[in-house]
Structure formats: structure tokens, C-alpha cells
Simulated assay, not measured.
Amino acid sequence: MGLIKFLTSKTFFLNLLLAVVAIFVLSYLTLRWLDSTTNHGKFETVPDLTGVSIDVARAELEKN
């Protein structure tokens, strides 16, 4: 069977369709899993320590 004949065969298109469907399904499941296992939408406030000495910054971080 020649390459051109194979690329236009029904078997090739069926396998190509199955591969595309599998990629979409795996992508969807991966994104749903990531959305449920990560802290999506939750934020942690961090104090602004710019221009503060190390001792004051250390005390501020220990307080929080």
C-alpha cells in the first residue's frame, strides 16, 4: 500500500478522528482535575516590606 493511498484511506481518517477526540477528552479531564485540586481564586495577602529594615521585616512576618 502506498503512502498516498494510506493517507486517503478510511482507516487513517478513523484513527485520526479517534486521536483528536482522545486529545480533547484528556485535555478536558486534566483541566477539570487542575481546577478542583488547586486553590483557584483564593488569595493570600502579603505585607509590603519595601524599604523596611531586616529586623522590622522579620518581626512583621512573625506577627502575621
Score class of each variant (00 low, 15 high):
residue 2 G to C: 05
residue 2 G to Q: 15
residue 2 G to T: 14
residue 4 I to F: 14
residue 4 I to P: 02
residue 5 K to A: 15
residue 5 K to D: 15
residue 5 K to I: 14
residue 6 F to G: 02
residue 6 F to C: 04
residue 7 L to M: 00
residue 9 S to D: 03
residue 12 F to G: 01
residue 12 F to K: 01
residue 12 F to W: 07
residue 13 F to M: 05
residue 14 L to K: 08
residue 17 L to R: 11
residue 18 L to D: 01
residue 19 A to C: 12
residue 19 A to E: 04
residue 20 V to H: 14
residue 21 V to D: 03
residue 21 V to L: 14
residue 21 V to K: 11
residue 24 F to M: 13
residue 25 V to Q: 10
residue 26 L to K: 15
residue 26 L to G: 05
residue 28 Y to S: 09
residue 28 Y to G: 11
residue 29 L to D: 15
residue 29 L to F: 11
residue 29 L to V: 03
residue 30 T to L: 06
residue 31 L to S: 08
residue 32 R to V: 07
residue 33 W to F: 12
residue 35 D to S: 13
residue 35 D to L: 06
residue 36 S to C: 11
residue 37 T to I: 05
residue 38 T to I: 10
residue 40 H to C: 14
residue 40 H to S: 14
residue 41 G to I: 09
residue 41 G to T: 01
residue 42 K to E: 09
residue 42 K to Y: 13
residue 43 F to A: 09
residue 44 E to D: 11
residue 44 E to H: 14
residue 47 P to D: 06
residue 47 P to I: 03
residue 49 L to G: 00
residue 50 T to P: 01
residue 50 T to Q: 08
residue 51 G to A: 04
residue 52 V to T: 14
residue 53 S to E: 05
residue 54 I to P: 13
residue 54 I to A: 09
residue 56 V to F: 06
residue 58 R to L: 05
residue 60 E to R: 09
residue 61 L to W: 01
residue 64 N to L: 14
residue 64 N to T: 05
